[in-house]
Write a protein that binds this DNA or RNA. Sequence first.
DNA 1: CGCTGACATTTTAAGCTTGAAATAGTTTTC
DNA 2: GAAAACTATTTCAAGCTTAAAATGTCAGCG
Lengths: 158, 158
Amino acid sequence: MASEPRSTVMPETGNKERLRLWIRLLRATHIVESELRDRLKREFDTTLPRFDVLAALYRERGGMLMSDLSRYLLVSNGNVTGIVDRLVSDGLIVRARREGDRRTSIVRLTEAGVTLFERMAQAHENWIAELLAGIGEDDVQHLSGMLRAFRSEWELEH
Amino acid sequence: MASEPRSTVMPETGNKERLRLWIRLLRATHIVESELRDRLKREFDTTLPRFDVLAALYRERGGMLMSDLSRYLLVSNGNVTGIVDRLVSDGLIVRARREGDRRTSIVRLTEAGVTLFERMAQAHENWIAELLAGIGEDDVQHLSGMLRAFRSEWELEH
DNA sequence: CGCTGACATTTTAAGCTTGAAATAGTTTTC
DNA sequence: GAAAACTATTTCAAGCTTAAAATGTCAGCG
């Protein structure tokens, strides 16, 4: 490991290193993501955004508001509308009107949705295990902890 | 740090941990990416894909083929066409016909493109430094090395 | 020369994504 | 209880993204 000399008067230490880290992080996730996209398409004829919505609804079996969904998935409101529309017309989820507040509608998996998602989730977990197999057990723990910290820090500030 | 008992007969060790790591990785990059998107929009009225294309062309000042560009950026061929079209009509890059092979065209930054990109790159570097400030110097090195390894492994296999 | 196959790029159709505007319903305030 | 403010969702326009088909070009071979 080559290491650069550490000047005690260097301002903005590690800017370049953080930039490089970011670029590598982006590339790695991009690689894995597009492999997942491929496999979801080939094996289940579906897409990553659809999978993400189903996964969120599987976690919250009682259903979610559209706004919960978009907040949880970190995507815009309008985005979710389209994906949900398509999943509804495929019979995987339903929109239920809600008593008391007619603005909101609760979105929930159907039986078919649950069944299909369970198959996909199992495959997905195996794919991830395979694709991330190169990362050692210790690194997995270390990294995972780091990223959890990163996220909670972010959420504190925002 | 709670650690789970390590059975010597447990198959597929760490599947769930790797899945969790993947989800956290995705969330972290998503958070940073959308912050970058926002700032690029606000400060430079541009988008991340445009920035990525400019960055690639800045690295390869002599210009790149469309296919080089899409391979380097890990996106489809047709995708690059659209982004390049728009950058050309904004005067930031040019398509130069090439002697000897009329199939290919070399894409290169214009003066205006270089100037603008240098401003954006400086801001971008600072944003990254700020957004990743929570990651300690040692972790940056460690992670960066891991990701480099991940990528070269991937490229060996593909 | 004229075919064939490979290559570089663009086009197309469908879906994803965003931010902003529009719609509709609810709550607050006076 | 009407007006104003707020909330949840959809619609819209523009751009991004992909995979697959179409176009145009080159290189080799008989």
